[in-house]
């Protein structure tokens, strides 16, 4: 699937940002309300993992 380079570039950037923001944000909120300190890191790793998975599904598979 060879799509246009510019569209792929900005979509990948958008995927990375949204994964980090959503799950990292969820982790930060969990830390804030539960008083823990590890949920942020878990959220960030989960977020970057889901971003990579989506990028792989959308751009690299096939």
């Amino acid at each position: 699937m060879a799509m246009n380079d510019d569209a792929a570039f900005w979509s990948i950037l958008a995927y990375l940002i949204s994964g980090l923001v959503f799950w990292g944000g969820a982790g930060a909120l969990g830390d804030h309300f539960l008083g823990t300190h590890f949920l942020l890191i878990v959220g960030l790793v989960l977020g970057i993992g889901s971003s990579f998975w989506l990028i792989w599904l959308r751009f690299l598979k096939s």
């Binding site: 979509s11 958008a14 995927y15 949204s18 994964g19 959503f22 989506l54």
Partner: peptide, 15 residues
């Protein structure tokens, strides 16, 4: 459950 929120956020906000 994990991927759909990220996908929605990408399409509706981040892009």
């Amino acid at each position: 459950l994990i991927l759909t929120p990220v996908e929605l956020l990408t399409y509706l906000v981040t892009r």
